[in-house]
């Protein structure tokens, strides 16, 4: 059985990756939307996004929309791959514990 991805497995990082993976490739979510979706605080969300960015799982782009700064977080191809493997491992764990049918 494959190993769980320790970076993704942390509950908030799992939510962040789940949210980003629900979008089409190369489409990101802005920080405010991500905060609302995950129910995280600014500081906590920022710290976990940084961890994911350091692992190469997400990219962070900062821009100004009008006069407002906007931070957009997007899952990278490596992040999507790692997330897919993590989900597959979770399913394997459940399947392995299920009683075998005769």
């Amino acid at each position: 059985m494959a190993e769980l991805d320790e970076i993704i497995h942390q509950p908030l990082r799992l939510k962040i990756m789940a949210a980003l993976n629900a979008l089409p490739a190369a489409t990101g979510l802005d920080f405010t939307r991500l905060k609302k979706l995950t129910g995280a605080t600014d500081g906590n969300l920022g710290a976990h996004i940084e961890t994911l960015a350091k692992a190469g799982y997400v990219t962070v782009a900062k821009a100004f929309v009008g006069k407002k700064p906007q931070t957009t977080v997007t899952a990278t191809a490596a992040g999507r791959g790692a997330f897919a493997r993590h989900v597959a491992t979770l399913r394997e764990i459940i399947a392995a514990s299920a009683p075998e049918a005769d």
Binding site: H9, K15, A19, A22, V87, R91, I93, A98
Partner: peptide
């Protein structure tokens, strides 16, 4: 390592977030 219950809970969290997105 986690057990099947924790794995199911993680998958449920993923589905909930994906549904909200």
């Amino acid at each position: 390592s986690i057990d099947a219950r924790e794995a199911a809970s993680a998958l449920s969290d993923i589905e909930t977030i994906a549904q909200r997105v």
